[in-house]
Structures are given as structure tokens and as C-alpha cells.
Nucleic acid binder design. Structure first.
Lengths: 184, 184
DNA sequence: GTCTATAATTTGATAGAC
DNA sequence: GTCTATCAAATTATAGAC
């Protein structure tokens, strides 16, 4: 379900922010309603249950990332530039959004999430790994499939972890120091 | 505050488990009380506020890790064995505990945590980095300080991220594939 | 130290008016 | 589509008996 009207997209927007700061267990429908300027019953009209909202927030986040990243096989952009673009997105979480990656936050909570929400988080990771594998293959076309996946997993994991540590320690340089090792 | 009696340590124990599964915002004093077999008022007797409990759970977790890791300069153990020991601890979270690292979970939630709790999480990361820096210095004593810290940060971040991704995707091999790159 | 009882607030969710 | 009103349950926390 894509946001069809203004209120729905506002709800998704503020819910995403809330979850990225406090987690799925850390926000309420009344929080969302207050942020949007409506009542919680109206939020339930658009998203009957909290799981519905969670799934749609996660799905929209994934689609937005994929759109930002673009086609990993687009030859108008170098593979290394694509890799940098990927890293930049996490850097934006830290600097611009001042929030966690949504998938990282809900991934940590995964085992206490409604099943449908947890599956949507897993989908985010799957698509990230597939995109990164394609990019890494362009960087080294002779690389074995297993090694490509290992590289994709490694970058994804490190960026997620770096975001947590940098934010907890209140030091953005920590993220920059870690992520800079992936651009040569 | 170390756990002085049986009830206190049981509370800390079940609270740790709860937080590592559902996060700081995902457990209640009644949950803890039910797990221990007492009433929530009794939990408040030992830990007046949720922040008190959170701080003490995090502190105990850190102390337990440091005790497990041991002296990073102990020459009876090779530096590489210490590194493997460090990685093993995260592997245990995944396999034995079937839970997140406590610091990773609360680190993700950091910006919505009571300040005292967030500080305790930051302390965990600081001590981890210091321990890893010492071990990496033993592996390459000519390495510059900045590079030692970079290596420490990288390993810490990657293991935390790998734990999230492996758990969310329900695939322990993912963690093993990522972490194996750090042992040569 | 643990209990019962309770306060004051918040939660996810629904019924029904407009 | 948004509202008021409400529900039943859960939340953090305290007072006071035993």
C-alpha cells in the first residue's frame, strides 16, 4: 500500500521518525496523531492496527531507499560511485535525520515484532544485499558469488553497527572513520 | 551496585533477557515480576525506577563481559586467541542466548533512553574499544594509535550489525560468514 | 522484603455521530 | 475522513500492612 493521500503520507512520515528514534515498542497511536494534528481514532482509520502501520512504514522506507540507490547496473554511474552513494545514505541518517536506520532499529527488535513487520524488515536486508552484490560484481567481475555476498553482508553490517555506536557515543567521526575504509 | 542477594540478581537476570529481546521500551515491571515470581511492587523495592533497573542491568552486563574477556595484556593468551574470544561472545548471543547484545539493543534506542541509561551504554562501547585497541596493538605493535582505534571500531561495529542482520533474517550462517573475516 | 491496594496515566482499539 | 467517547488492559510508581 503506497500512501494515497496527504494524511496517510503524513502518518507514515511521522511514524517513521518516531520508530527511528524510539523503536516500534516506543511509540503510540496518540503520539502519531499529535504529530500529524489529528486524533488517534483517525490514525486507526488509515492503519487499523499497529502492525499495519509498522509494515507500511517499513515498506515505504525500503522503496524509498531503492529509488535513491537506483539501478546497480546503470553504466552511467561507476560501481564505486554507487558504493559511495550507498554509504552516504547511512551518513545522512546520522547527520541529516539524526536517527537510526529504520531497519536497524526494528531489526534489533525483530524477535518481539509482529511477524508481518519482522518479515518486512528482513525484506529490506535481502534487497540491500542483492543490490550490493550486483555493485561488487561490477567492481570485480571475476569474484566468486560467495565472496560477493560476503562483501555485501560485511558492508551492510558494518554501516548498521557504526551508526549505533556513533549515535550512542555522540561522535559522528566514529561513523566516518569506519565507513571511510570501504572507499578506496 | 552489584547484585547483593538472590532476588536482586534474579531481577537483573530476567530484565537483561527481556531488554535483549524487546528493548528498554518493550518490557514492564510486571513482566519482570512475573518472571521472578514476585509482585511488581517488590521489583520497585529493589530498583525504584525503570531507569535504575536499566542502568544496573547495563552495568552488570559490561562487568560480566570484561571479566569474560580478561586482561588484554595477559601474555599467557595470544592476541589472536583474545580476538577470537571476543568474537565468540557475540556468537554466543546468537546461538546460546538467542538474543541481541544488550548494548546494541539499547544503543539503537539510545536517543529515547533516560540519560543515565544511555551513558551506561556508551561506557560499554568505550571499554570494548579500549580492550580491542590493546589487543590489536599486540598483534601489530608498530601500528599507529589511530589505526588501532579504527580496527577496534570496525570489529565492534561489524559484529553488532552482523548480529542484527543474522537474527532478523533467521540465518546464523550470515553472522559466521561475516565474523570469520576477522580471524586469519 | 514482600504483599495488597491503588493512583494517575497511557496503551491499542472500537462504536457511532457528523 | 475525522471526530467524541469510551473500553479494557497495561503502565510506572507509591502508601501502608504484615
Amino acid at each position: 500500500m503506497a500512501a494515497k493521500n496527504d494524511t496517510q503520507s503524513k502518518i507514515l512520515d511521522v511514524a517513521e521518525t518516531r520508530i527511528r528514534v524510539s523503536g516500534y515498542n516506543g511509540f503510540s497511536f496518540r503520539d502519531i496523531a499529535a504529530d500529524v494534528g489529528i486524533k488517534s481514532a483517525s490514525v486507526h482509520y488509515h492503519f487499523p492496527t499497529k502492525a499495519d502501520l509498522g509494515v507500511n512504514v517499513m515498506h515505504g522506507y525500503t522503496e524509498r531507499l531503492l529509488e535513491y540507490l537506483g539501478d546497480p547496473e546503470d553504466n552511467n554511474v561507476s560501481a564505486k560511485a554507487l558504493l559511495q552513494r550507498y554509504i552516504d545514505r547511512y551518513h545522512q541518517c546520522l547527520i541529516k535525520d539524526k536517527a537510526m536506520c529504520l531497519a536497524c532499529m526494528m531489526g534489533a527488535e525483530a524477535s518481539s515484532l509482529p511477524e508481518v513487520v519482522a518479515q518486512e524488515v528482513a525484506r529490506f536486508f535481502e534487497l540491500n544485499i542483492a543490490w550490493l552484490k550486483t555493485v561488487y560484481q561490477r567492481i570485480d567481475s571475476n569474484e566468486k558469488k560467495k565472496k560477493l555476498k560476503a562483501k555485501a553482508l560485511h558492508l551492510l553490517a558494518t554501516l548498521q553497527g557504526a551508526l549505533i555506536i556513533a549515535r550512542t557515543m555522540g561522535n559522528t567521526k566514529i561513523f566516518e572513520r569506519i565507513s571511510s575504509e570501504f572507499v578506496h
